[in-house]
C-alpha cells in the first residue's frame, strides 16, 4: 500500500514541474497581459504548494496563513496591473499590431 506522504511528495513535485513551462510564457509572451496571466497562474500554484509543504512538515497551521496572504497578494497584484494597463499603457510594447481604436 502506498503511503499518503509519498503521494503528497509526488503531488508537490508535479506542481513544481507544471510551473516550469509557464515560465516560457512569461519570457516569450507577446503582450504584457500574457505575462501577468502567467505570473498569476504560478502564484495560484504556489499557494496550493504551500499547503502541501505544510502537510509534509506536519505544520499546516503555520503554512495556511502564508497561503492566505499569498493568494490575496496575487489577486491584488493582478488587479493593480489590469487597472494600470487599462488606463495608461498599450498592451503591446514597441510594435503595436492592434493600437488604439
Amino acid at each position: 500500500m502506498i503511503e499518503t506522504e509519498t503521494i503528497l511528495i509526488c503531488a508537490g513535485l508535479g506542481l513544481f514541474l507544471m510551473m516550469v513551462p509557464v515560465i516560457y510564457r512569461i519570457i516569450k509572451g507577446p503582450t504584457a497581459i500574457d505575462r501577468i496571466v502567467a505570473v498569476n497562474v504560478i502564484g495560484t500554484k504556489t499557494a496550493v504548494l504551500l499547503i502541501i509543504i505544510g502537510a509534509l512538515f506536519d505544520n499546516v497551521s503555520m503554512f495556511v496563513d502564508f497561503a492566505i496572504a499569498y493568494a490575496a497578494l496575487n489577486f491584488l497584484g493582478s488587479l493593480a496591473a489590469s487597472r494600470y494597463f487599462n488606463r495608461t499603457r498599450p498592451a503591446y510594447g514597441n510594435e503595436s499590431t492592434g493600437g488604439k481604436n
Binding site: T31, I33, S82, R83, F85, N86, P90, A91, Y92, T97, G98, G99, K100, N101
Partner: peptide
C-alpha cells in the same frame, strides 16, 4: 477587459 480595450486582436 484591459486587453480588449487595448485592441488585442
Amino acid at each position: 477587459k484591459a486587453g480588449y480595450d487595448d485592441g488585442i486582436v
